[in-house]
Design a protein around this nucleic acid. Sequence first.
RNA 1: GCAGGGGUGGCAGAGCUUGGCCAAAUGCGACGGGCUUAGGACCCGUUCCUUUAGCGGGUGCGAGAGUUCAAAUCUCUCCCCCUGCACCA
Length: 934
Amino acid sequence: MDKMLDINFIEAKWQREWANAKLFESEVNQKKPFMITAAIPYPNGPQHIGHFRTYGTADTLARYKRMKGFNVLYPFGFHLTGIPLLAQANKVKERDQNIINDFKSFGISDQEIEKMSDPLYMGTYFASEVESGIKLSGFSIDWRRRFTTIDPKFSKFIEWQFEILKEKGCLVQGSHPVGWCKKESNAVGMHDTKGDAEPEIEQESGVIFDIVGETYGLICATYRPETIYGVTNVFVKPETTYYICKVNDSQNIIVSDKTYEKLSFQLKLEKISEIKGQELLNKKCINPLSKVEIPILPGSFVKEDLGTGSVMSVPAHAPFDYVALKKLYNSGYLKEEVKPVVVLKITGVEAEIPSIYYLTKVSGDINSSDEKIEEATKLEYKEEAHKGVMTFPGYENVSELETREKIKNALSVDKKYFPIYILANKTKVLCRCGTEIVVKVIDNQWFINYGDETWKSSAMKLLSEIDVIPLKSKNALSSAINWINLRAVARAQGLGTRFPLDKNYIIESLSDSTIYMAYYTIDYIIKSVDDEKLTPEFFDFVFRGIGNIEDISKKTGIDYEVIKKSRESFTYWYTNTSRASGLDLIFNHLTMYIFNHVLIFDKEYWPKHIVINGLVMMNGEKMSKSLGNVLLVKDAIKKYGSDILKLVEIGNADLFNDSDFNVETANSVRDKLEFFFDCCVKLNEIPSNKLEQIDYWLYSKLNNKKTIITNAMEKLELRDLVTNIVFNTSIELKRYFSRGGNNAIVLKDYLSDVSLMLQPIAPHISEELWHILGNTTFTTTEKWPETDKELIDMKIEEKEQEIDSLIDDIKQAYELTKKKIPNISSCNIIVASQWKRDALNSLIETKKIDATITSLGDKVNKEQAAKYLSQLFKKVNELKMCSISEQDEYESLSSSKEYISKIIGIPIEIQRENDSISQRAGKATPMKPSIEIL
RNA sequence: GCAGGGGUGGCAGAGCUUGGCCAAAUGCGACGGGCUUAGGACCCGUUCCUUUAGCGGGUGCGAGAGUUCAAAUCUCUCCCCCUGCACCA
């Protein structure tokens, strides 16, 4: 009690021992390999414990597999490619106080911060910072293979990968919308905007309505091209100036002056002349779908700086349009009403004109406020998209969403359709330089074409064969594989490898980390090779077995042995790999990981196993700097120790769920572990007597536990694992002692296996316990304990359970009796007769009372038996067999008489039903003896 | 909107794949008691309602309906919550 565990001391000690013994430096050998990689950190600051979970999960698995006899490799590296480091370095350069204060709060000196205006310096600085934190954790990592994704050799590897992507036709070019700063002429992402706002780009449809008798047409922007058939007119703003311009060197279109510039970043626009909105009003235009001539009407509500500055009008399905037309009619501008054209019906809604229906539904009319009309619009759009089917010619009964795509395609053929992009952010997005961001369509953008059907189907094939833990995330992966399409791969800025097909660009940083795990297998072998020698031929041989060593050695100048060893290393380790990653990476990293593996590697080197885990919360809240609840890995380890941190993080929730780190759990885990220590230390004072029932009970529990824990380990049900190994162990030990268990040999067997099973989740403590128990080996290199089925005795467990529930019952009965009879002297426990057990079992089998009674024979009082059985029969389907005989039960209870008596505080007597003279004797049932308090 | 996951006792969180032993593991909290100079730790008990000297009965696992001798667990409908939606690591 007096000694507190010095966790930090113990952990440092074992980390030293492991390092001295080089336990984690994994080399190719005869054993079956198991290679696990965890998603590597992006070191743009110190790591908080949230990042710890994935590495911890990987470590747990690695340690378990090691004990199961695998040759395990767990390597580690750092991801430095990408934009955030660059953006952060720029902030430091600009003396941004927020970031400087942040860094200061991490205890970084002013001089260091000064140097961090260099992104590379910053990355390197934090990489070593993170590394030292992870080293404190004592994970079983082979640090010799550490690399970063900006190492020149790694770049060679990535260039080789992209050569393959190119050869296989996976790189395609196309246009792509990006956020754009026109002043800096630069693509703008979240890291480049004021307040780190992500530019939200949405696609609209630009539809052209040719004007009758003119060489130009109006272009309207809409979210709902499927309603074009129902367009009855177009609205323009009379006082606005419109530009007539040539679009994409072909037809002429009209856009408002205020939208001209924005649109010119997306379409090739060439201004020809100007025209006032007013002048358009007496013209007519043509509905591109129905080919009907429709009027151009004045719309004062048209916003000249949004979209294209003109609006198509669908009064039947857009409340705003209906209201505007009604007002025009009422004002006398229109001589006759415009008749709405209905193009879709909504399942379950009886409405002649849907927009009127929805206006009425929200109790609005044409004089309602914009808010009311907006409400009606939202409701209508929602229900139409959900339940709407089209009614106009050629599209009858097609769903709205399907129609949308079909119409786009149909109009594209006639060049009446253009995608138009807008920024959907609620507030204007500004570049750091202060300029408003626009959407620019970049032509010739490079993509990786994950939409390729053949590629997709091999990715699906891999998915069908791979183990995903937890299994339910396989669905997510499957839909991710179906969904992923083109992915832009080149970026204008950031750290990383140059894009081979256009050296002005950098390879986007998720795309350069899809197969890096393979690089671990050769990293430390090629450390001494000159960068230039690492040509594609070398990698082709190592990773794909193309060519032969002599030729490649001659051609590249790389040592024969280096090439040979690299190939051996890859072909050995990569036959059995596991990937641990976060939930948030399913839809990008993990999906791309699968795609790139099936493309590049032969089938036998495809990954076998994926582990996905959720986030880490802090006392129930998401960890974030702004909440001030960020717990850094280093601090947490210092405070709780790596083992406890890991136990709490992985043991507090199953993989897929977010894990909550709270101090109470950490303390309670710590208490349990201290208790284990005490037990190990105390062992010397305990004798080794003859084995009692309780000793067999502990053996039975232990061996049951081994099966349960092994299963949990195989499926990585970490929460179950921790519950069983930490909490239930503690409960069992306590019960063993209080039940009078006092046998050193039994306890030692039990504690030894427990300390072995602790190895994957609490390795330092596992080693320490193991040594206190007198062992001189490492648990790290010991075998995982095997279940001894011989020692599992469910009858004993049942009997012990009976004792517990009996004590419970007596206590309650005792308390209640005490009120009536103040001086209680003793207590009789009456064990049910054997015939009751036979009757019970027979009843369960036959489900017939009469048959059961007959089977009991003559020795039994039939009247008594009938009474007993009719009681039981009420729940005949819920009964369970009793395998414990009267004699067994009697002996079990007799032998624990003193224990029970001690707890109750009065002497007790065990009797047999037949021998008892008590009135309550008849109430005894198998394993539920009758209690008589005297 | 699309996709994925989920809604269980004061809280967190198992269980639901293979329906019955589930009033529902485990941890935390709360209350009562013990230990202690006191606090912490530790130990014992209680923690849906009701009842009985343990037994038992009722209600109950988002809402509703269904299948079944039997449903937190299977089916259907509805409501609600979380996460992701891309060039960003």
